[in-house]
Design a protein around this nucleic acid. Structure first.
Lengths: 195, 195
DNA sequence: CTCTTTACTTGACAGCGTGTCAATTGACAT
DNA sequence: ATGTCAATTGACACGCTGTCAAGTAAAGAG
């Protein structure tokens, strides 16, 4: 594993993230990525089997870069269930902008590529576990409203803070990130927390 | 405008809707549609300029078939703001399954095709007006909760009952249509209606 | 009963993006 | 000097969209 291999591979991954960060997932071709990385298109295939493989690797690379596990710490160290719920929602909300580009690309690929679908679904299932933990912490504090079962509440929360909804609110509705966070926090508080 | 023209055109549109109803938008090629309609692939282009044009026409055709305007009647004739909100959410919820296939296809096309994006956006803007009307009816009754401005409440409602969220809850979360309606009604009531 | 028009067919082909293959270069290690 | 390995170049197959040209079959008009 010479450092040259790593360097080129990393440059490809970085190029991928750079280009996808615009949110124009469909406009990013293998040729564009190669050009951005300063190599030939064919050389990309020396490091990644195909486009899906590259996109999946790019999400893992991004995790490394951003330390996605650390994101959950404030939510894990929260004292009350309410605090935990709010810390989780806010932490995730601040993480979305960083993963949005690659996320959107993987979501688009989901429809055509089995491996991409599996990879993205796994990430989303992991995120759902965070939702579930927050809901259960609330329930443990007897602060979870009785309208919804914990499973339903988890599903609602999971759906509510999805990438797609963030995109719709931020881009379609023109909300600022601050507004998004404020409204989401108010929404989950109102929906799930006993008065 | 001989009836033969109409017949073939209609058969193409019907074939398109039939194939898309499975929700596997990306698997439906022009060839598949032609085959389903019983004509040659090239003949499809005698009636529609391109794939986007065909998909857009298919949504309009579906509107004709289903009389989408009639959907809003129960919501318009509702007596109170709450009634109106609930009628709107339930009416839309029951409409989604019918438009889901073609809707998903247009959403996917949105990214690549300007015209498809415009067409779908228009439909969604129209739907947002329904959301807005329901929220304003609630406000007029002084039943709209003060946490959100009417614009914010409209945006939240609009996002909440989106096709994507319906898909996530029905398919990803495995909810039944009845469960979806029950939970959505409870959610909007809790979020927007004063006690 | 021709003549024309119209809808449709067939076959071929260009464009574009992905993915593959073979031959070659250039650097570095032994 | 020799072998290895990353990367390059050029060519090509595949799948799908969209286009074009020539031909056919049937309906309507004179």
């Amino acid at each position: 594993m010479s450092s040259t291999i790593l360097d080129t591979r990393t440059r490809i991954l970085q190029a991928t993230l750079d280009l996808l960060s615009d949110g124009k997932a469909h406009a990013v071709r293998m040729t564009d990525i190669a050009k951005q990385a300063g190599i030939s298109r064919q050389a990309v295939y020396l490091h990644f089997d195909n486009r899906a493989d590259l996109l999946i690797a790019a999400t893992l690379y991004l995790d490394e870069l951003k330390g996605s596990d650390d994101r959950l710490i404030p939510s894990r160290t929260a004292k009350s269930g309410i605090e935990r719920l709010e810390a989780f929602v806010e932490g995730w909300a601040n993480y979305i902008p960083e993963i949005f580009g690659i996320g959107k690309a993987l979501i688009a690929m989901r429809e055509e590529d089995e491996a991409a679908a599996t990879a993205w679904d796994k990430r989303m299932r992991d995120m759902r576990e965070g939702c579930e933990a927050a809901i259960l912490a609330l329930k443990k504090d007897r602060q979870l409203r009785p309208e919804f079962s914990p499973e339903e509440a988890t599903d609602i929360l999971w759906t509510l803070i999805s990438l797609r909804n963030w995109e719709q609110m931020r881009i379609e509705c023109g909300w600022s990130q601050e507004q998004y966070i404020r409204v989401m926090l108010a929404t989950v508080r109102r929906l799930f927390v006993c008065d």
